[in-house]
């Protein structure tokens, strides 16, 4: 069944979009990532114009994050206090990111920088996660209890605050900085930023894996909502028709994913996410390195 999308101005298969939303939704619920870093390239692939894919992707992230957070709230796996602190940084970062994006577009080359951002960040994060989670699994096999709390520079900063749900007593500066840098990247790359946020929370802030997913989703809702309105207002590239189809698949997927996530061990979740991140990274890197079959591309004036 084909449907014509009013803003994207193309005709696409309803079930294809529904399935795409569902697949990304499952991953989103399992790993606490918005799924934007998967959704956006997949939408390019089925012929949605890039500008529309990026903007509509953020709108879909709002829906699947809301759905995911509600599931996590029920199980009390959201550190709301940490969420608000991250959000303060996130919104400032998103605002800066949008300015930076506009500037990059004015000097051209925005596509390249976005792709490079993806390759570099996905590569670093994916590799680190892969190493860490493999080591964690090996450690568990040898049945020695992992050392949880490590004291590093994060604990030496002022303005300390108690985050009871996470069991942390740390300065608010690192979470705000994490939120800020993720916000900047999120706005440039047109994603929620969960795939950067989740590892940062685990490895920099030292939050327990259990609350990381819910808290990340909570924060992503607001950053993605902000970005959606910005895109709709500045570029008129949010396609409600496309968004609804992706959302219908996505929210169902997110619910399933959140329940699947409960059944598998934290280390396994991490290694799966790591493999996914590395896979997407390699795919994009290959695209940059191999000579494209069509060297020319079309763009609108302006």
């Amino acid at each position: 069944m084909q449907v014509y999308l009013p803003i994207a101005e193309v005709s696409v298969n309803v079930f294809l979009l529904f399935g795409l939303g569902g697949l990304v939704g499952i991953l989103s619920g399992m790993f606490g990532v918005g799924g934007g870093f998967l959704m956006t390239p997949l939408l390019f692939f089925i012929g949605i114009p890039p500008a529309v894919a990026v903007a509509t992707g953020t709108n879909q992230i709002v829906a699947s994050s809301v759905s995911g957070v509600l599931a996590h709230l029920k199980r009390k796996t959201v550190d709301l206090r940490m969420g608000w602190v991250l959000l303060v940084g996130g919104l400032i970062g998103a605002l800066l990111g949008v300015q930076l994006f506009t500037y990059l577009r004015s000097i051209g080359q925005v596509d390249l920088l976005v792709t490079l951002c993806y390759v570099v960040f996905l590569g670093i994060i994916g590799f680190l996660m892969l190493v860490e989670s493999t080591r964690a699994i090996l450690r568990n096999r040898r049945a020695t209890a992992p050392k949880r709390r490590r004291h590093n520079w994060v604990h030496a900063l002022p303005f300390k605050m108690k985050f009871r749900t996470s069991g942390l007593y740390i300065s608010v500066i690192p979470p705000i900085l994490v939120g800020l840098s993720v916000g900047v990247l999120a706005a440039i790359m047109g994603v929620g930023g969960g795939f950067i946020m989740v590892p940062a929370m685990i490895y920099i802030l030292g939050m327990p894996t259990k609350v990381v997913v819910g808290t990340s989703l909570f924060q992503i809702i607001f950053v993605a909502a902000f970005t959606t309105v910005m895109h709709a207002y500045e570029n008129q590239t949010v396609d409600i028709g496309l968004a609804i189809l992706l959302i219908l698949g996505g929210v169902i997927g997110a619910q399933l994913g959140a329940r699947i996530g409960l059944r598998i061990k934290a280390e396994q979740t991490r290694i799966l996410l790591a493999l996914l991140v590395v896979g997407v990274c390699l795919n994009l890197a290959v695209g940059l390195l191999i000579e494209p079959s069509e060297l020319y591309s079309l763009g609108q004036e302006g």
């Binding site: 709108n59 709002v62 829906a63 809301v66 759905s67 509600l70 909502a225 929210v251 997110a254």
Partner: peptide, 17 residues
């Protein structure tokens, strides 16, 4: 339009949950 898109997204998220 942007706010409407958000409202729809939020509603669907809540409804599914």
């Amino acid at each position: 339009y942007g706010l409407l898109s958000l409202a729809i997204a939020g509603f669907f998220g809540w409804a599914a949950s």
